[in-house]
Amino acid sequence: MELKLDLALILTGVLWGAVLVLGLMAWRRGRILLREGLRTGGLDFIHILPRIMLGVVGSGYLAAVMPQSLIIQWIGPQSGFLGVAIAAVFGAITPGGAVVGFAIAATALKTGGGAPQVIAYATAWALISLQRTLVWEVPAMPAQFVTMRLLASVPLPFLAALGAMLIGRP
């Protein structure tokens, strides 16, 4: 626990160190650039604040009302590759952004989902997310490319889960 806290502190330090370096780089190119960066970043923060508050505060309550036996049965540690497949399908069809995806993944993990299965969920959601693909990728990219990319992504949730099973972590 103590190690984890230190890690979190170091990460925060690294992040703010990067902010400092980037801010200096922007400042050297002109004060306006620095001000513009601070403004844009600050506005982004304010924009996502409601979502992150909702997601973080809400995931505890969502976990508390989840039907635990169902989660364990479908995607629990004993569910094997069928559970991985179920989790991957759910990941691919989960709509919305990072808050939705990780709130669901965190809930699944808290209520007894197996780590490899939750990793498969997160991987499928990150790579395939049908809503993101349809709304953002299809309009911007050639159709053949999108098809090949999706096909090439299908094995990855299973490989990620397999990797987690083999090393026995997390």
Binding site: A18, V19, A26, T40, G41, D44
Partner: peptide, 14 residues
């Protein structure tokens, strides 16, 4: 989160 937002804004600008 705030640091992440600022990094994103600066990198996209630079």
């Amino acid at each position: 989160v705030l640091a992440g937002c600022l990094i994103g804004a600066f990198v996209m600008m630079l």
